[in-house]
């Protein structure tokens, strides 16, 4: 029995070292080629920025406050883009 436990433990360690075990969650399942990651990061930033600009311009048109909300949401969109990229690489958040 003791022998068996030791084997399981060593197998676990070896698998972890080789990265064979599936990660529990997070974006680990995605392909990790440098081109793919770079392209994905770029799209994350650009799309968040685009959404921020879109929201800002839309609110400005509605409220007639051009260009202030556009400027505000441009910055917010940029921060959201950086946050998206940060989440791509950060370890998964803890469960509540």
């Amino acid at each position: 029995m003791n022998e068996r436990d030791g084997f399981e433990r060593r197998l676990q360690e070896a698998r972890a070292k080789r990265g064979l075990d599936k990660p529990a969650d997070g974006q680990k399942g995605l392909p990790a080629g440098s081109w793919g990651v770079g392209f994905r990061a770029g799209i994350e930033v650009v799309s968040a920025l685009a959404v921020g600009v879109g929201v800002g311009v839309g609110l400005d048109r509605w409220l007639g406050t051009w260009p202030w909300l556009f400027l505000l949401f441009f910055v917010v969109g940029a921060v959201a883009g950086v946050l998206n990229v940060y989440r791509m690489f950060s370890p998964p958040r803890r469960r509540p």
Partner: peptide
């Protein structure tokens, strides 16, 4: 909150543009 909402709204955009 605005940052998180925009981050959330950017998901369909990045998903489709990719």
């Amino acid at each position: 909150i605005p940052i998180e909402i925009i981050s959330y709204l950017s998901r369909p955009v990045s998903l489709s543009v990719r």
